[in-house]
Design a protein around this nucleic acid. Structure first.
Length: 505
RNA sequence: CGGAGUGUAGCUCAGCCUGGUAGAGCGCUACGUUCGGGACGUAGAAGUCGCUGGUCCGAAUCCAGUCACUCCGACCA
């Protein structure tokens, strides 16, 4: 076990341990913020690259809007301002002066600026300028940016005051078209989570009280972590005409009538990295899905005699050269030769903690055999995780093998999700008894003590208080409503709606 | 914003009760032996003891203030 704390011992502590031992990020000196290091930011860059392509394939183009938003913009949409008021970073001054040897803010701004917690208001302002006629619609845009929400209890990747994300914003001429867009992008997120991150999700709609402030409907993808808690991994909002009305986004339709437009917004963030960690990492550290691993293959030279160094390095370079045109997931392979002047065992263990999908150890012995030693991260410690292969065989099969490893990771995570959605809890008593337990690590392929419950909900507003007192949340109202039976698990009233109940991050 | 705790070397911490030259392990540097599941020897570098003030011949240690961080709550669209 390379982690100081195992998942079973203390899941939250294990998580922090993985983040630091895999060298993905650390707490910054600025409170609540993080420094993303090469291996963590590298994962984000991969997420950006793969997702950006999907966003562009669906017709969107990237824009960039300012991070400072005039305070008055938030005033315009009542629900929106109320939803965000408590967590805004506010810029009130434009310079510093020295007073008694201390720096103090000076030159107050006439109108304070808000550091964007999200960009609906400032993008809507632009939409209002750009939209004149139905011929201008739809506008389909996206931006990759940082946002700030003044969180009180930050956790690396899962909740930080500043985080990175993409936010898509679109304007449409009709209700239906905007609603379709919202659901379409949710589908893009689901495919991305499952295919790129090997993280299966449940898709659905948020209950009324949990919607994005200012939205008509909020849709989400919800993932299950290894402790049975839910992680909201992405959201897609149908904003109806709410922001169009507050920002005055109007167009002339084909009948020459003025009409308010319909808008959407959708986003995923660096939180996905936290999700990937808690989906796949084990007691030896991170396990990177090959599709998004910054490096898929790491070569570690094993040098017993210094004299061997040149020929071993040459041998490795030669293998790398032969992999030049090989692909996996339709992309070139990402390969690292770790030639740092360190003991090879240390290097190997470092890549295990980082979760590089394949580590290849190559020494003098392999040159004689025209072979190499291949270790696959997901099979660490198991006999099948360690193979001596011929170079030709490796070169021909490695691309497919990376795809296969990705598939195995998805299957494992999917099995956990499916085995841990309880549908047999049908009364408030059984429900309360179930959630009286606390969350703990769920062993692979097993059913955990506490995870998701799929069951009935009456939808009454009084349930909000009950949930709060139990520290349970309704993750979503799944699209798939193929039903469970029973009464509302909170009130015992008659109910028709199926929802997912869980503790959450 | 409430409750608790912690600030000593890059990291993890001991020393504080009972004041008297700043410590350990890991890491780092050099050299040598090593290297395919976490090696070892020898030598070495490294700290205004969070900060400010007080008591005292003398403060990491006692007192007061202050700042920061961590954990638990409240908050988390």
């Amino acid at each position: 076990m390379a982690m100081r704390t195992t998942r079973k011992q203390n899941y939250p502590e294990w998580y922090q341990n993985v983040v630091s031992e895999a060298d993905m990020a650390e707490n910054a000196s600025s409170p609540g913020c993080m420094v993303m290091k090469a291996w963590g930011y590298g994962l984000w860059e991969r997420i950006q690259r793969v997702l950006d392509e999907k966003i562009k394939e669906t017709g969107h183009e990237n824009y960039y809007f300012p991070m400072f938003i005039p305070l008055s913009f938030f005033q315009k949409e009542a629900d929106h301002v109320e939803g965000f008021a408590k967590e805004m970073a506010v810029v009130t001054h434009s310079r510093l002066v020295t007073e008694d040897g201390k720096l103090k803010p000076a030159s107050p701004l006439e109108e304070p600026l808000i550091v964007r917690p999200t960009s609906e208001t400032i993008i809507a302002d632009s939409f209002a300028k750009w939209v004149k006629s139905y011929r201008d619609l739809p506008i389909l845009l996206n931006q990759w940016a940082n946002v700030v929400r003044w969180e009180m209890r930050p956790r690396l990747f899962l909740r930080t005051r500043e985080f990175l994300w993409q936010e898509g914003h679109t304007v449409h001429a009709t209700y239906k078209e905007a609603e379709d867009e919202t659901v379409k992008m949710l589908g893009v997120y689901r495919d991305f989570a499952e295919n790129a991150l090997a993280m299966p999700v449940i898709i659905g709609r948020k209950p009324e009280y949990d919607k994005f402030p200012g939205a008509v409907d909020t849709y989400c993808i919800e993932a299950m972590m290894q402790d049975g808690k839910a992680l909201q991994a992405g959201t897609s909002h149908f904003l109806g005409q709410n922001f169009a009305k507050s920002a005055n986004i109007k167009f002339v339709n084909q009948n020459n009538e003025q009409e308010f437009a319909y808008t959407t917004s959708w986003g995923v963030s660096t939180r996905l990295i936290g999700g990937a960690i808690m989906s796949h990492a084990d007691d030896d550290g991170m396990v990177m899905p090959p599709h998004v691993a910054p490096y898929q293959i790491v070569f570690v030279p094993v040098i017993k005699k210094a004299d061997d160094t040149p020929r071993i390095m040459e041998y490795i370079e030669n293998i790398k050269a032969q992999l030049k045109d090989k692909t996996a997931f339709g992309e070139k392979l990402r390969i690292k030769i770790d030639n740092r002047d360190k003991p090879s065992v240390d290097k190997v263990w470092e890549w295990i903690r980082k979760g590089a999908p394949m580590v290849c150890e190559i020494g003098a012995r392999d040159i004689e055999n025209n072979g190499l030693m291949v270790k696959e991260r997901i099979f660490l410690g198991q006999p099948e995780g360690k193979k001596i292969m011929k170079v030709d065989e490796f070169i021909d099969s490695v691309g497919e093998r990376l795809v296969a490893l990705q598939q195995i990771m998805l299957e494992k995570a999917t099995e956990r999700l499916h085995n841990n959605i309880r549908t047999d809890i049908t009364t408030p008593e059984a429900f309360a008894a179930y959630f009286a337990n606390s969350n703990e690590w769920i062993e692979d392929g097993k059913q955990g003590k506490v995870a998701f419950v799929r069951g009935k909900w009456c939808g009454d507003s009084e349930t909000e208080e009950i949930l709060k007192s139990m520290k349970i949340t309704i993750r979503c109202i799944p699209f798939d409503q193929s039903g469970t039976t029973g009464k509302c698990l909170l009130t015992g009233k008659d109910a028709t709606m199926d929802v997912i109940y869980a503790r959450s991050y």
